[in-house]
Amino acid sequence: MLTKPAHKPKRGFTPDIIVVCLICLLPLLWLVWRFLQNDLGVNPVETLVRQLGVWGLRLLVVGLLITPVARIFKQPRLIRWRRPVGLFAFAYVALHLTSYIAVDQFFDWGRIWADIVKRPYITFGMIAFVLLIPLALTSFNAAIKRLGGVAWRNLHKLVYVIVPLGVLHYFLLVKADKTMPLVYGGIVLVLLGWRLWRWIRRKV
């Protein structure tokens, strides 16, 4: 088509993106509401820290799910949802860490540092969080342009390491019943397996 396209590709906060943001915000609002209502159970601090972590992991998994769904169902517009979902995942993980530092440990830096170095599950969780930071910092258009599409895409492949680290963090923390971490692990395995399979198919 040489004439002006009938529909310019939409950018920014289109209605679907706003809806995605609102949905991502719901668990947080729900948690804050329950916290204020004193409805987070017998051990509210633990519930708060755990729920923030679990929602961070859930959104990371949803973020990994978007590309396969968009490709399989031929809905390329869905790709745009990755950014809000990914940024919200980062926000939940950051709040998870903040609640651990500020509410659970009450800024006892000595103990926190000892935890990070000595407790494998906290070590892996911290690595995952640190690796998320560059991804969050480069999640705006100017950064993508500056890095160039290829470099940006390669950088964001870090998420293939981050999500398994998050699952490992969860797995190592659970005492006896590993069902839930294994469920997350299984889903992540399928989502990463799909990418591997496509990559191999392209190579041969």
Binding site: V42, N43, V45, E46, R111, A114, D115, K118, R119, P120, Y121, L172, L173
Partner: peptide, 13 residues
Amino acid sequence: DHPRWSQATERRI
């Protein structure tokens, strides 16, 4: 310590 967490402190419910 428990191998996975510290036992130095506790939260009284």
